[in-house]
Simulated scan of single mutants.
Amino acid sequence: MNAELDEIVRAELVEREPCPRCGAPPGSVCRANSGVVAVDYHTGRYAKIPGLKSGPAIRIPAARGPGRAWEPGPEPDLAVGGALARAGDRIGYARVSSKGQDLAGQVRLLKKAGCVRIYVEKIGSREKIRPEYNTALADLRPADTLTVTMLDRLGRNMIELITSAQDLAERDHRLEILGGPLSGVYDPQGAGKVLFVMFAAMAEVEREFIHERTLIGLDTAAANGNHGGRPPAVDGDQLAVALRRRDANEPVTSIARHLGVGRSTLYRTLAAYDEAMAANEAPRTPPGS
């Protein structure tokens, strides 16, 4: 089946159903608010077709006259059918912000959703370039869908979320969100766009709240004497023991073994101590000399 025939077959399948959004009767294409033939069939209409409901948007064929004055079409031929070519592949994208986070859960959900390829990356929120995301975009064909598990996987702030979604729509790609308040295929028209902007703003505000609570927690811990970070490999008591044993001419390797620390770690600690002591004992130049 060639592309042109596939386009007509899909159109005839969709047109078997009336459109709940624009009121187009069976056998007619969808119409826009301006009264002309729409460019896409409205989601609520083709979602009734089992073979199409999980796929991307369906464009109205050029033969149906998108942009021209709308007129009711003929009654649908219920005998229309035949093989239906692919409505597009799902391309998955998964992202975490730090190396300590796990991508396995996102990948598992994307595979379950039927993604034929999945692009993953671990990248900080301050990085402006997302190489794997750009690769996923380059892999999308016009009928394909970019699938993410949650809205905030698509972008790290409201501007990035909205820009990415609009860019996908302009490229004739679809965006699918598996979970959250906007789960489903994103419709960039009408109320869908308003909801998307609203939830994108909510996601950014929530990230700011998390960031603020983290800073408050760190400040509280620091006020209580806990400054976080990795504990020193050699504490003060161990350093005192190491210095005493070194003064007795015991090899550093033996001291490190006794303290249960790495030899190179102990060498660095002793060198830092010696450097600090030398700096404190260095003669200071009198002012004005």
Results as ranks from 00 to 15, higher is better:
222 A>M: 02
14 V>H: 04
210 I>V: 09
131 P>Q: 07
246 R>K: 13
142 P>S: 10
274 D>A: 11
176 E>H: 09
2 N>I: 10
214 T>V: 05
229 G>L: 02
109 L>P: 00
8 I>G: 01
47 A>Q: 13
169 A>E: 05
92 G>Y: 12
117 R>C: 03
29 V>P: 03
144 D>F: 06
122 K>S: 09
77 D>K: 11
60 I>W: 07
119 Y>V: 09
10 R>D: 02
26 P>L: 09
22 C>I: 08
92 G>V: 14
79 A>V: 06
43 T>Q: 12
41 Y>R: 04
281 E>F: 06
158 M>Y: 02
223 A>T: 03
69 A>F: 10
122 K>F: 05
171 R>D: 02
237 D>R: 14
260 G>Y: 02
148 V>N: 06
69 A>R: 12
104 A>G: 04
140 L>V: 07
55 G>W: 13
240 A>T: 14
81 G>M: 07
269 T>H: 05
14 V>C: 07
254 S>L: 08
59 R>M: 12
20 P>K: 09
247 D>P: 02
209 F>W: 04
120 V>K: 11
56 P>E: 14
149 T>I: 11
21 R>M: 14
43 T>W: 05
70 W>I: 06
26 P>W: 10
63 A>P: 03
213 R>W: 04
150 M>P: 01
182 L>Q: 01
32 A>S: 15
50 P>K: 06
269 T>P: 00
85 A>M: 12
